[in-house]
Write a protein that binds this DNA or RNA. Structure first.
Lengths: 153, 153
DNA sequence: CCATCTGGTTGCAACATGCTACCCCTCCGA
DNA sequence: TCGGAGGGGTAGCATGTTGCAACCAGATGG
């Protein structure tokens, strides 16, 4: 694991997020966790991932504070992996990926799973990036303010 | 490249999105593209990635329709990599990752780069997942409606 | 026309992934 | 109380991917 701390000192929040969840499986594990998976075997069957890889990913996500190991959940003495508040805050990320995939990765008539409002079974509203005053903004309306880069080299 | 089409037939949009952009570098390349990088060397210096990896990633992103190669941009006969509309639609994904990283991956007093509204230099509003009626919803308020899985086996 | 910069490609070493086999623990019925 | 089944992993090995450095080709430029 040489890449563990690769962007730990990068002042860009995107880089640090990618550092935490930016590999192939982590995001899918988190998606399954949002979807209700809690046990090792559930993740394994849902993802079809090798057990050692899943084991390593779950451990990394626990270390990252995204998942927590609960000693037991449904009576049986096995352990469950549940999202921490930090993990739950990834909800917009997963929703954004989902909406992008829905829009761009499916044929118009191709069926796909959907994320629905539990209250009325209707799909969610599209995520919108808003300015402080509520005005919707696109990439061109924003500017990245870089940190002044302390004593770096 | 055995993983290229790994989730191509997966009916979950999140999986397909991860298939397209879910590796270490792609998202950072896209972030840099939003930030104004266009040329090979710009990406390379900004990311510190090996040139062959960058080359492969850029090619994959172009194949995925996220970036496009423009024959020239600033006069000199070199080529530029620019976001397509499909790539620009990743803006909420990048913003979501950025906001999550800002909240969870920095010490309270630690400086980091910021994404500001160009109009008034103020930070953006937090992304919110909204139901069709505008009510904000969290993970527990939603349910994934799985596709009935056609003739699969 | 030689030196240099940009934009790559190629080869090789190191690392990560995936698969299979195995292991330990708990649960459960006989 | 024993044996089997299933959950939750680890170990070993083949393969694929990443990273680094070297190299290369076309523009620039003196």
């Amino acid at each position: 694991m040489v890449k563990r701390t690769r962007f730990d000192d990068n002042p860009c929040p995107v880089a640090r997020s990618v550092d935490a969840i930016g590999d192939w499986w982590s995001l899918l594990i988190i998606r399954d966790a949002f979807d209700g998976s809690r046990r090792f075997g559930e993740f394994q069957r849902s993802l079809g991932v090798a057990k050692n890889i899943l084991s390593a990913r779950l451990r990394a996500l626990v270390e990252a504070g995204i998942l927590a190991v609960e000693p037991a959940s449904d009576g049986s003495a096995y352990q469950a992996y549940v999202l921490t508040p930090k993990g739950e805050d990834l909800f917009p990320v997963v929703v954004a990926l989902r909406q992008w995939g829905e829009r761009h990765s499916f044929e118009p008539d191709e069926p796909h799973s959907e994320l629905l409002d539990r209250r009325d079974d209707r799909p969610l509203r599209e995520l919108a990036v808003l300015a402080a005053d509520g005005r919707p903004v696109g990439p061109a309306d924003t500017v990245v303010h870089k940190v002044p880069e302390p004593e770096r080299a």
